[in-house]
C-alpha cells in the first residue's frame, strides 16, 4: 500500500521550546491516523509542518509522495486543513467563504458556487449559507471550516483537534462527517486529546508527548497495552468503599485508584469484568450510585505508558 503521509525524524524548536524532538508519522492511503497527546505535545506543530505552514528544522516529510518543503505548492494542491481555531472569515457569509476558497483553487465562479452549495448541503448548512459566519454557533463554524478544507477534493485531510470545545451531540456530528470523508477514500490525519475519539475514528494511533512518539499501535493494540477499559464505581455509602475496593482488586489489572472521595476506578482486562462485579455486588447486597465501563482518559493513558501523569510530566 502507498503511503499518503511519511514523515521521518521531524524536529522543530521555538526559542527554548523543543516542540518536536524527532518524530516519525506514517499513514497509508485511505486510512485514518489518530495523533494523541496532551496540550503542548507537539501535535499542532506536526500538523503545521505536514500542511506546509511551517518548515521543520530537520527531518523529511512526504505528503502524497511530495516533499513538504521543496514541493510545497504541489503538496498544497492535495491537502485540506482544518485548524484548531475555526479559520473561516467572520465578516463573510458561509457561501462567500466557500466560493472564495473555490476560486482560489482555480474553480470558475460558477463551479465554485456549485461546489459551495454541494458542501453546504452535505454539512447541513444550506439554511445558514447566506448568513455571516460570525452569527454561527461553534459547531456550525467547525462544520463550515471542515467544508472549506474539502472544496478542492483533497487526497489528504489534516484535522487539528476537530472536536475540542464541542458538546457531545455536535461532536457526534463531526465524527459522522469524518467517517463520511473516509468512506470517500480520503486519508485523514487527526489530532486529539481523547483516546475515545482516536478509538472511534482511527485505524492506527500514534501517541506523542514532548515532541516524541511514545507509542504507536492499532486502537485494539493500544488498549491492550493500556489494560483495556476502566471500570468506575461510585459508592452509594462511603462505608462500602473498602468492600468495593476488595472486589475491584480481584478483577483489575492494577491497584484501584480513588479519583474522588466516593469513587474507585480500575483498569480491567476484558468486558466480562463488568458482569462479574455486578454479580458480586448483588450477592454482597452493596448498592452503588454509579457503575460504568469506559476507555482510559488521556491522563490514564499517559500513566500507563510513561508511569507519570500529564501534570507530573509537565512539571518535570
Amino acid at each position: 500500500m502507498t503511503k499518503a503521509i511519511e514523515a521521518h525524524g521531524l524536529t522543530k524548536r521555538f526559542g527554548k521550546t523543543q516542540a518536536l524532538a524527532g518524530i516519525d508519522l506514517e499513514v497509508d492511503e485511505g486510512r485514518v491516523l489518530g495523533v494523541l497527546g496532551p496540550n503542548g505535545a507537539g501535535k499542532t506543530t506536526a500538523v503545521r509542518i505536514l500542511a506546509t505552514l511551517l518548515k521543520p528544522d530537520s527531518g523529511t516529510a512526504l505528503v502524497s509522495g511530495r516533499d513538504v518543503v521543496h514541493q510545497a505548492k504541489e503538496v498544497r494542491r492535495t491537502i485540506g486543513l482544518t485548524g484548531q481555531y475555526a479559520s473561516v472569515d467572520e465578516d463573510l457569509t458561509g457561501v462567500q467563504n466557500l466560493v472564495m476558497i473555490g476560486q482560489l483553487l482555480d474553480l470558475s465562479t460558477k463551479q465554485a458556487k456549485v461546489r459551495a452549495d454541494e458542501l453546504l448541503a452535505e454539512f447541513d448548512l444550506t439554511d445558514a449559507g447566506r448568513r455571516l459566519t460570525k452569527t454561527y454557533s461553534g459547531g456550525m463554524r467547525r462544520r463550515l471550516d471542515l467544508a472549506a478544507s474539502l472544496i478542492g477534493r483533497p487526497d489528504v485531510v489534516f484535522l487539528d483537534e476537530p472536536t475540542t470545545g464541542l458538546d457531545p451531540a455536535k461532536r457526534d456530528d463531526v465524527w459522522g462527517m469524518i467517517r463520511m470523508l473516509v468512506k470517500q477514500g480520503t486519508t485523514v490525519l487527526l489530532t486529539t486529546q481523547y483516546l475515545e475519539e482516536a478509538d472511534a475514528l482511527a485505524n492506527e494511533i500514534t501517541v506523542i508527548d514532548h515532541g516524541k512518539v511514545i507509542a504507536h499501535d492499532t486502537p485494539q493494540g493500544l488498549k491492550r497495552q493500556l489494560g483495556g477499559q476502566t471500570l468506575d464505581v461510585r459508592a452509594a455509602s462511603p462505608a462500602d468503599l473498602p468492600h468495593i475496593r476488595e472486589l475491584l482488586v480481584s478483577v483489575g489489572t492494577r491497584e484501584p485508584e480513588q479519583p474522588s472521595p466516593d469513587q474507585l476506578s480500575v483498569p480491567v482486562r476484558d468486558d466480562g469484568a463488568l458482569t462479574t462485579v455486578v454479580a458480586a455486588l448483588a450477592q454482597e447486597k452493596i448498592s452503588v450510585a454509579e457503575l460504568s465501563l469506559r476507555l482510559p482518559s488521556l491522563d490514564e493513558v499517559f500513566y500507563s505508558l510513561t508511569g507519570k501523569t500529564v501534570s507530573e510530566e509537565g512539571a518535570a
Binding site: 505552514l53 498544497r76 494542491r77 491537502i79 486543513l81 475555526a86 472569515d89
Partner: peptide, 13 residues
Amino acid sequence: QKGVFDRFRSLPI
C-alpha cells in the same frame, strides 16, 4: 491572529 491566513497558506496560491 484569527487563523484566516493559515487557510490561505494551505492553498496552492
